[in-house]
Deep mutational scan, measured.
Amino acid sequence: LTVQLGNLEWHFDNPEQALKMAEELAKRYQLKVEIDNGTLKFK
Rank of each mutant, 00 (worst) to 15 (best):
K20P: 00
E34Y: 15
Y29G: 02
W10P: 00
F42W: 04
V3W: 01
E24N: 12
L40T: 00
D36F: 11
N7S: 11
T39L: 10
A22Q: 01
E9M: 14
E9R: 15
L1I: 12
A22L: 08
R28A: 05
Q30N: 15
N37V: 03
F12R: 00
V33Q: 02
F42R: 01
N7W: 12
Y29N: 03
K27A: 10
G38Y: 04
K41M: 06
L5Y: 09
M21T: 04
T39W: 11
H11F: 11
V33F: 15
V3C: 04
L5A: 02
M21V: 09
T2M: 07
F42H: 03
L8I: 11
L5V: 07
K41L: 06
K32G: 06
T39I: 15
K43W: 13
L8V: 10
Y29H: 07
L25S: 00
L40F: 06
L31R: 00
L31D: 01
I35T: 05
E9T: 14
G6S: 04
F12P: 00
I35F: 14
L40C: 13
N7A: 11
A26V: 05
A22G: 04
T2V: 11
M21H: 11
K20R: 13
H11P: 03
K32D: 09
A26S: 08
E24K: 15
Q30W: 09
A22F: 08
F42S: 02
L31M: 09
K43A: 11
A26Y: 05
L40N: 01
G6C: 14
T2E: 03
V33D: 00
R28S: 03
V3N: 01
V33C: 06
E24V: 14
F42T: 03
F42D: 02
G38F: 06
D13G: 08
Y29R: 02
A22R: 01
I35Q: 07
K32T: 14
L19H: 09
L8M: 12
E34R: 06
K43P: 04
D13Y: 07
L40G: 01
F12Y: 07
P15F: 14
E34C: 15
L1M: 13
K43Q: 11
A22H: 00
Q30C: 15
K27H: 09
L1Y: 13
W10I: 09
K20E: 09
K20T: 09
R28Q: 06
Q17E: 14
Q17T: 11
L40P: 04
L19M: 13
F12D: 00
A18V: 05
L31S: 02
L40D: 01
A22S: 04
K41H: 08
L8S: 08
K20Y: 05
H11E: 03
G6D: 04
E16Y: 11
K20C: 07
L5P: 01
L8H: 12
W10S: 01
E34L: 14
I35P: 02
P15V: 13
K43S: 13
W10V: 07
E16L: 13
K20Q: 10
D13F: 08
N14A: 07
R28W: 07
N37Q: 07
W10K: 02
K41Q: 06
E34H: 12
D13V: 09
L25P: 00
E16K: 12
R28Y: 09
D36E: 14
L25A: 01
D36G: 09
N14D: 14
L19W: 15
N7F: 14
L31V: 05
K43E: 09
P15R: 13
V3M: 05
A18W: 06
R28F: 08
M21Y: 15
Q4M: 11
Q17H: 13
V3E: 02
P15E: 09
G6H: 07
L31N: 01
V33K: 00
T2L: 07
T39M: 12
K32F: 11
T2P: 03
N7P: 09
K41I: 13
Q4N: 05
L8T: 07
F12M: 03
Q17L: 13
A26H: 03
Q30L: 09
I35A: 06
K32N: 08
E16W: 12
R28K: 13
Q17Y: 12
G38A: 06
A26I: 06
F12S: 01
F42P: 03
Q17R: 10
N14Q: 07
A22M: 06
A26W: 07
A18S: 02
K43T: 14
L19F: 13
Q17I: 11
E34A: 07
K32E: 11
E34D: 08
E24R: 15
Q17P: 05
T39E: 06
G38K: 07
Q30F: 12
Y29W: 09
N7H: 12
P15M: 13
V33W: 15
L31T: 02
P15S: 10
M21P: 00
H11W: 11
G6P: 03
D36W: 10
W10M: 07
K43H: 11
F42I: 15
Q17G: 06
M21G: 01
E16F: 10
D36M: 11
A22N: 00
A18M: 06
D13H: 09
T39H: 08
Y29T: 04
E16N: 10
E16S: 10
D36P: 00
T39V: 15
Y29F: 12
I35E: 06
E23G: 08
K27V: 07
Q4K: 13
T39C: 13
L31I: 06
A26G: 07
Q4P: 02
W10D: 00
N7I: 10
L25N: 00
L25T: 01
F12T: 02
L1D: 02
M21C: 15
L5H: 04
A18P: 03
E16G: 09
D13W: 09
H11V: 07
A26T: 04
G6A: 05
E16H: 11
K41G: 03
G38V: 05
E9H: 11
E34Q: 09
N14M: 08
D36C: 12
G38R: 07
K43I: 15
E23L: 14
E24Q: 14
K27N: 09
E24P: 01
M21Q: 04
K43V: 15
L31F: 07
I35H: 08
L8E: 05
Q4A: 07
K41D: 03
D13L: 10
N14L: 09
V3D: 02
I35D: 05
L31W: 06
Q4W: 05
L1C: 12
K27T: 07
Q4V: 14
L5Q: 01
M21D: 02
A26R: 05
L1K: 04
A26N: 02
K27D: 07
E23I: 12
E16R: 11
G38H: 08
K27E: 09
N7V: 10
I35M: 12
A18R: 00
L40E: 01
E34T: 12
H11D: 03
A18K: 00
E16D: 12
L19Y: 13
F12N: 00
L19N: 03
L19D: 00
I35G: 02
E23D: 09
N14Y: 08
P15H: 11
Q17K: 12
E23F: 14
Y29E: 02
A18L: 06
E9G: 04
F42M: 12
L40I: 15
G6T: 04
L1G: 03
N14K: 08
F12Q: 00
L31K: 01
K32A: 11
H11L: 06
E23Y: 14
E9F: 14
D36Y: 11
N7T: 13
V3G: 02
A18T: 03
V3T: 01
Q17W: 10
N14T: 12
E24H: 13
E24G: 11
L40H: 02
R28P: 00
D36A: 10
D13R: 07
A18E: 00
V3L: 10
K32R: 10
K27L: 08
K41V: 11
Y29M: 06
L40K: 00
V3I: 11
A18Y: 04
D36I: 14
K32I: 15
L25G: 00
E23V: 12
N14S: 10
R28M: 09
F42K: 01
N7E: 09
L1V: 09
K20W: 06
F12I: 03
H11G: 01
K41P: 00
K20F: 05
L5M: 08
K27M: 08
E34W: 15
P15N: 07
L5T: 02
Q4H: 07
Q17C: 09
E24F: 14
W10C: 12
E24T: 13
E34G: 03
F42G: 03
N37D: 09
E24L: 14
R28G: 01
V3R: 01
A18H: 01
L8W: 15
K20A: 12
A26L: 07
K32M: 11
I35N: 11
Q4I: 14
T39F: 14
T2K: 11
L40Y: 10
L1Q: 04
G38C: 12
E9I: 14
G6Y: 05
M21E: 03
V33M: 10
E9C: 15
E16Q: 12
K27C: 13
A22V: 04
Q30V: 05
A22E: 00
K32C: 13
L19V: 08
A18D: 00
L8R: 15
G38E: 05
F12C: 15
N37W: 03
E23M: 14
F42C: 14
K27Y: 07
